[in-house]
């Protein structure tokens, strides 16, 4: 692991973006380090498997690097990254059918506070929900993921998706209805 420049560590987002634009060594590494978990989780929820989520995460950061000059701070860096992430994921899911996760991918879940039975039940329930979410139409999927798992407001989601708050809420309503059908009695 390359440790980012200590002098960069204290920078806030705008200063870090400026450092990236100046080409300061380690600045973009630090940006990636700060946001990689969020970006990966967003991608994983879209595609439902580790390999594709990993590839998509890389793609998101690469696009962010290319587009950094156009980032003017009109939105927060994380909102801007979400926008890139959602677009990358929507492009991918419309281009190919993605495999869902295998049971092996769940081995790193930290469930020290649970009994083995509870852990197994929760893992199975989680896998079913993720699989159902992965079957939602892309816009509904994006809305549900951003709302439920990234704690974004309806307005923020509208900003990311380039739509209205009303459309976001309608999408969310229909996403929940479809999810209920997909999960059946599991809920």
């Amino acid at each position: 692991m390359i440790t980012a420049d200590l002098a960069l560590a204290g920078l806030d987002e705008p200063a870090l973006v400026e450092a990236c634009l100046e080409g300061r060594p380690g600045a973009f590494d630090l940006l990636v380090e700060r946001h990689r978990r969020t970006v990966y989780q967003l991608c994983y929820r879209f595609v439902g498997n580790h390999e594709d989520a990993s590839d998509l995460s890389q793609d998101v950061f690469l696009r962010a690097f290319r587009g950094l000059k156009s980032f003017r701070g009109q939105a927060s860096l994380s909102t801007w990254l979400y926008r890139i992430g959602v677009n990358v994921c929507l492009n991918r899911v419309s281009a190919k059918t993605l495999p869902s996760e295998s049971i092996d991918e769940r081995q790193f879940e930290d469930a020290r506070a649970q009994s083995p039975d509870d852990r197994l039940l929760q893992e199975e329930r989680g896998a079913r929900v993720r699989a159902a979410v992965a079957q939602l139409p892309p816009k509904q999927r994006a809305t549900l993921i951003l709302r439920m798992y990234h704690e974004m407001s309806h307005q923020e989601i509208a900003d990311v998706l380039g739509s209205s708050v009303g459309a976001v809420k309608a999408n969310f309503f229909h996403a929940m209805g479809n999810l209920k059908k997909l999960l059946g009695d599991d809920t």
Partner: peptide
């Protein structure tokens, strides 16, 4: 309630640095 608290499986601890290296 049903959809909340469904976490993404945590990847290997080594994954994060590998991702950073790939991006770099």
């Amino acid at each position: 309630s049903a959809v909340a608290d469904v976490d993404v499986p945590e990847p290997s601890p080594l994954f994060w640095d590998r991702l950073s290296t790939r991006v770099r």
